[in-house]
Structure formats: structure tokens, C-alpha cells
Amino acid sequence: MDTRKLVEVCYTPGEYAYFKDEFEIVVVIDVLRATSAICAAFDNGIASIIPVPTVEEAWEYKQKGYLAGAERKGQIVEGFDFGNSPFSYMKEEFRGKEVVLTTTNGTKSLDVAKDAETVVVGSFLNLNYLNEWLEKQNKNILCLCSGWQDKFNLEDSICAGAICDHLINTGNFTSVEDSSIAAKYLYLSAKDNYLGFLKSSSHRRRLKNLNLNEDIKYCLTPNQTNVIPILRNGKLVNIQEN
């Protein structure tokens, strides 16, 4: 009998319903840029992040005095002070604070997955640290890619493939879905040069047109943080501190 646990990849939040009942842990991935910004925020000492799916909800929190950020289509929503650039969260004003955030794709995925047993945030920034934690859990793991407006994207799929490849190589996990096998091979093709491989990807072009090249380079540079944001009671907190 095969006692290995499953690690699979779901390419978009819209496909999550097909997977959700089989997995105890969901890793939400939005490389460019929400989950990268969230990891940067916790690395900078933020206390917690309340992810909300709509701009209206974020605005309600802002009216109550919360630090609130909103991003749509790569840009800061009018009336908000920040969006989902990781560099926004490296300022002193965020340390020890609770922040509210809504983004085009990443916070939607967090909302879709919120009822799973365990929801954690993944990116290239915390890849090795997250992989080491995941391999100790002995549970079925789903990598939920945020995609772009419910469509497939390369960078999230490559990051998910990196997680699959690591866990399968431990000998304790297996993948049976074609989506996971494809993600793994995308990762193996891209791993020596993420920037080059993703040069013509749609979201990288989108962000480049918004003059966000520094964000792109930062988000595609692995293992800059040792944090694992985890969803608890509707808030993201750093797993190390809880």
C-alpha cells in the first residue's frame, strides 16, 4: 500500500472546487506580487494582515483607522496609500501593526481556500523555509496558484512546481495530476534563470509596463525570508510567532 501523501497543483482559484476536499494544507501562491509582499511584510516585523477579497471591504477597514492597501490590475487603487509592492512593507510604519490588504488575485485565492484545515502563503521568497516545514507535516498538500483573473500564469505555476519537486524528492510525497507534473517540469526548465524564463510572461510584461521592474526582480529572487504566513481566524500571522 502506498503511504505517501499527495502534493498537487491547482492553477487557478476557479478550479479549487475540484481539489479542495482531498487536502489538509493549502499553499496559496501569487508570486507577482501579493504573496511575495506578504512574506516581505512579515520579514519586516508586521504583526498581522487581514486579507479581504473586495476593495469595498478594505475601504471599510480604512475608514475605521486601519492601515489598508488595495491593488487592482497592478496599480494602487485610488484613495489607498499602498498596494502589493513588497517594498511598501519594508517601512518602519508597518512594524508591529495590523494591516488590511486586497489584491486582484492573491487575496481572492486566500478567500477561496479559507475553510481548509491549514492555509499558508508561499512565494519564491520563502521557498526553502516553506518546503522544509511542509515536508515535516505528513499531510496532503495543495499548491493553489492565484493566476491572473482566474487564468493560468507561468510564475505561480513554476513556484508550485518547485514545491512539488522538493516534496516528491523526499520520497514521502507523490503527484498524480497532470497539472502537478506539468508544473514540476516548468520549474525544472526555469530554475536556473527565473527572470530569463519569465521574460515574455504576460504578468511580467504587465508589471514592466507599469515600471515595476524592481518588484519583479525582488519577487523572483528565492529564499530572502524565513517566514511562513499562516491564516488563523481570518488573519495572516507569522507561524514562528504563534
Rank of each mutant, 00 (worst) to 15 (best):
N128Q: 14
D115P: 00
L195V: 09
L144S: 09
G74N: 09
V99R: 07
C39W: 04
T107D: 02
C164S: 12
S202E: 15
S179H: 11
E56F: 08
F87T: 03
T174E: 14
P51H: 10
N138S: 13
K217P: 00
V9N: 08
L142N: 09
L236M: 07
I158F: 07
D2N: 15
Y18S: 14
D115Y: 12
S48H: 07
L67C: 00
V120C: 12
S146E: 01
N44P: 02
Y66G: 05
K5S: 11
T225V: 12
V176M: 12
L167V: 03
A17Y: 14
K5N: 14
D192L: 02
F87A: 06
S201Y: 07
S200R: 13
L130G: 03
L154R: 12
G122F: 01
E15C: 02
A70I: 01
L6K: 15
N226R: 14
Y89Q: 04
K217C: 03
V121E: 02
S48C: 10
S202K: 15
Q63M: 12
L101W: 05
E93D: 10
E177M: 14
A41M: 04
Y16A: 04
V31F: 11
S88Y: 13
L127K: 14
C145Q: 06
E155R: 07
N233T: 08
S189L: 14
N44M: 03
E241D: 13
F152I: 01
L130K: 10
V77K: 06
A70G: 03
A37F: 06
V121M: 01
F152M: 10
R33M: 12
S109Y: 05
L198G: 11
